[in-house]
Design a protein around this nucleic acid. Structure first.
Lengths: 245, 245
DNA sequence: CGCTGCGTTGAATCCTATCAACGCTCGTGG
DNA sequence: CCACGAGCGTTGATAGGATTCAACGCAGCG
């Protein structure tokens, strides 16, 4: 059930504006382009493949909902490469013509918009596109940092550290799009999904979650994370705020 | 001991030409630019930091030797993100002005050249720079695929699979720059380095290496890998030749 | 009502890490 | 020349972290 959004309930472009505006100052003309994204946005249910590995397709922007890039091994093992949050791109904005480097799947119902309006040829330096161009460059840079963080987590951190480190990442990214309420935020992730993101088994995710709760660092249940001791979490996970928050 | 190469023993630009020429057809004028890279190349001994995380510096091209991108955790744990082979860039060519997203260290003596000659403003479409521009875009795309492969290895593969998968990656990348001799190739990696790349302990790398040898898949000793059963290796590691070889 | 998705628990197993020690080669210096 | 140490590979024993298998509880839903 893919439907085009119509009528008065246009999805909000806020996340995108916050995200890109946080990466580079945008002219009012550029902000208008972002505000126009929701026209012709599309809604997809959870589990939808938003783009498939090796396939060339125009880049999208996620307006609302969560998605993830993942890869499936021959025997069914799944590894989630990164989570895609509102304001993030699906498919590279910096290299729009290359095939997708991995499959992106909706984790919740999502609203996506065609990102091509952001891609006008921005040859003229200092033109009204300079802000968007820089924001796009920054986005792909941040994406790479996120991927490298993921490598370090999986390669050299314990389950306990990985879990906290990922939650700190999500916290930082959600903060940038104003989706943090005080010391808690909504996280539509099952333990199953967390396991595939952190390279662990569901059972062990469950036990690690209990451990962090017992240690009073944070609490995760019912799709919501409440942070109790941010500083202790940063210490445990060896957090270096590489992502501007 | 950093010295500039002088005199008649200029380092060969071959790897770079093979690498970039394999990613996009290059005009003779573009090839000339690559051939000119070795002028003013620099030699660094092993262990040299070629670029440091967060620091902005002009991109380099590795002409010979091996390097790696790595990150060190607070308590000394090290994770190698990717190996840098001859013909590869150090620092992004596609986004030359952004800070480095991780530290790059020489694993052997290396020769590097300033990559800025490749970066002329290539506004004019179809200009003599089109090939280089495309090759640079492809390189950053391949780099991302390599990083994603690394995530999958670390997250969802066993030590045995990881080791073989990495060796297949190195084989493919070395083949592209013509550094494979029959069924064997030189690999200046200690077991210590392999461990930090694959997220394992040295001891376990050692034992896994013995296992693959006993299984007659391949043999690694004295800085050289000999492949005995390529097809079996691909099967074991769930290899999908994402990297053009 | 029974099913499905999700979270939870216990027990046993396995993979991988850690610790400690030893052998080897090679370069260095006495 | 030989002693010495550093770097690298190897081995055994032990411990620990994470997986697997299996089962159960619970809520939501057709």
């Amino acid at each position: 059930m893919i439907r085009t959004v119509v009528g008065t309930d246009l999805p909000s472009p806020n996340a995108t504006i916050l995200r890109m505006g946080g990466l580079a100052p945008l002219s009012s003309c550029e902000a208008d382009i972002l505000r126009d994204l929701p026209r012709q946005a599309r809604i997809h249910p959870a589990q939808t493949e938003l783009c498939r590995e090796h396939q060339v397709q125009p880049p999208l922007v996620l307006l609302s909902g969560w998605a993830c890039c993942q890869r499936i091994l021959g025997d069914g093992r799944r590894q989630i490469l990164r989570f895609v949050l509102p304001g993030d791109a699906i498919g590279s904005l910096a290299q729009p013509v290359l095939p997708a480097s991995s499959t992106t799947v909706a984790l919740t119902q999502v609203v996506v918009a065609d990102a091509r309006p952001l891609l006008r040829p921005s040859d003229a330096a200092g033109a009204p596109w300079a802000g968007l161009t820089k924001a796009i460059a920054m986005m792909s840079h941040v994406d790479e940092i996120i991927l490298r963080d993921q490598v370090v987590r999986l390669g050299r951190q314990t389950a306990y550290e990985r879990l906290i480190h990922l939650i700190l990442e999500l916290h930082g990214r959600l903060q940038a799009i104003d989706m943090i309420d005080g010391n808690s935020f909504s996280v539509p992730l099952t333990q199953d999904i967390l396991a595939d993101a952190l390279g662990l088994s569901v059972v062990h995710i469950n036990r690690t979650l209990q451990q962090v709760r017992r240690d009073r660092l944070l609490d995760m249940r019912g799709g919501r994370i409440t942070i109790h001791q941010m500083d202790a979490m940063r210490r445990v996970a060896d957090w270096v705020g590489s992502i501007a928050a």
